[in-house]
C-alpha cells in the first residue's frame, strides 16, 4: 500500500483533482454547446483514436458484405435489370433537365437574379449508424480531406437526409433530419409558404412549428428546402405533411411530417457544395465520383 501513498504526496489529493476535472468537463460542455471553438480539439482527438474507430467499423462492414454476398444470382440479375431501366429513364430525364436548367439560368439572368443553382456533389458511404445510442446520427467515410465542412447538406436519391455536424480527416458525422437538434428551412412546394422543419427525436417524424391556424397547408403537401439561411440549396424535397391538428385554443398549428428520404435505407449518400461550381464543371465531378460509386453495379454486371 506504499504506492498510492507515495503518489498522493507528489500529486494533489484525489478530491482536489476530481473537482478540477469536473470543472474542466463543465467548462468544455458550456463552450462546446455554445460555440464551434472546440472543433479543432475534437478533430485532433478523433484522429488520435481513429485506428480504434476504424477497427470498430469492420464488423459492421463485414456483416454487410457477407449478407450481400449471400444474395441469390436471380435476385441480383433482377436488381441489375431494374437498375438499368432506371438508369435509362433518368438519363432521358437528365438530358431534358440540362435544357431546362439552361433555360432557367437564362431567364434568371434576364430577370437580374444571380443565384446559381449548380452544385458540386460527392458520393459518400455510410460507415456507421447511430453512434451514441438514441441519437439520430450517421457517420460518413468522407472528411476534411475531401473538403467536407460543418453545416454541409447531405442528400440521397430521394431527398434531404441531414447536415454535417462534426468533421475529422477521414470521417464526418451527420445529424439526420429527425434529430431534435436539426432544423431545416423549408417551403410548401404548392404555394411557397415558408417554415422551419424540426426533428422530434422519433424515427420518421418531423414537426413544422409556428404556423398560424390560417396558414394554407394540407395533409400530403410536399415540403422542399427553401434556401433560407444559406445552408441548404433551394428545391430539394425534405418532407411531406402527414397530420395537421387544428386546436383553436393554441396559437399555432400542430403539424407532423415524415421525411421524403428514407433515412434508414441505403448506404450511399451525396454531399453537396451549393453553388460553388458552374454547370460545366459539375459533370466531370459527378463522373469522377461515379467510378467509385458505380463499382458495385459493374461488379454485378460482370457476373
Amino acid at each position: 500500500m506504499s504506492k498510492p501513498l507515495s503518489r498522493m504526496s507528489t500529486a494533489p489529493p484525489v478530491t482536489l483533482r476530481v473537482l478540477i476535472l469536473v470543472a474542466a468537463s463543465i467548462a468544455l460542455m458550456l463552450v462546446d454547446n455554445r460555440t464551434q471553438q472546440l472543433e479543432k480539439l475534437r478533430t485532433g482527438l478523433h484522429t488520435l483514436v481513429y485506428p480504434v474507430i476504424f477497427l470498430s467499423t469492420i464488423p459492421g462492414n463485414l456483416f454487410h458484405s457477407f449478407s450481400e454476398s449471400l444474395q441469390e444470382r436471380s435476385t441480383l440479375q433482377e436488381e441489375n435489370e431494374r437498375l438499368k431501366q432506371e438508369n435509362l429513364y433518368y438519363k432521358s430525364r437528365f438530358e431534358k433537365l440540362y435544357a431546362l436548367e439552361a433555360d432557367n439560368e437564362r431567364l434568371k439572368r434576364l430577370l437580374g437574379q444571380s443565384d446559381d443553382i449548380a452544385e458540386q456533389v460527392l458520393l459518400a458511404e455510410l460507415v456507421e449508424v447511430s453512434l451514441e445510442p438514441y441519437t439520430q446520427q450517421i457517420v460518413l467515410n468522407k472528411g476534411t480531406a475531401d473538403n467536407v465542412y460543418i453545416g454541409q447538406p447531405v442528400i440521397n436519391g430521394e431527398g434531404v437526409i441531414g447536415q454535417v455536424v462534426h468533421t475529422s480527416y477521414a470521417q464526418s458525422i451527420v445529424t439526420l433530419l429527425t434529430d431534435p437538434d436539426s432544423a431545416v428551412p423549408v417551403m410548401v412546394m404548392r404555394n411557397g409558404l415558408r417554415g422551419v422543419m424540426r426533428g422530434t427525436g422519433v424515427r420518421d417524424r418531423l414537426s413544422l412549428p409556428y404556423l398560424t391556424p390560417n396558414a394554407d397547408i394540407l395533409v400530403g403537401d410536399l415540403l422542399i428546402s427553401s434556401g433560407m439561411g444559406g445552408r441548404f440549396p433551394t428545391g430539394y424535397p425534405v418532407a411531406s405533411i402527414t397530420a395537421i391538428e387544428r386546436n383553436p385554443s393554441l396559437e399555432f398549428l400542430h403539424i407532423e411530417a415524415t421525411p421524403v428520404a428514407r433515412l434508414d435505407h441505403g448506404r450511399e449518400v451525396l454531399l453537396i457544395w451549393p453553388g460553388e461550381e458552374e454547370m460545366t464543371s459539375k459533370v466531370p465531378a459527378v463522373e469522377e465520383q461515379g467510378q467509385e460509386a458505380m463499382a458495385i453495379p459493374e461488379a454485378e454486371e460482370g457476373q
Partner: peptide, 8 residues
C-alpha cells in the same frame, strides 16, 4: 469524440 456527443 467517438460518439460525437457534447465534449465533456
Amino acid at each position: 469524440v467517438m460518439h460525437g456527443s457534447l465534449l465533456g
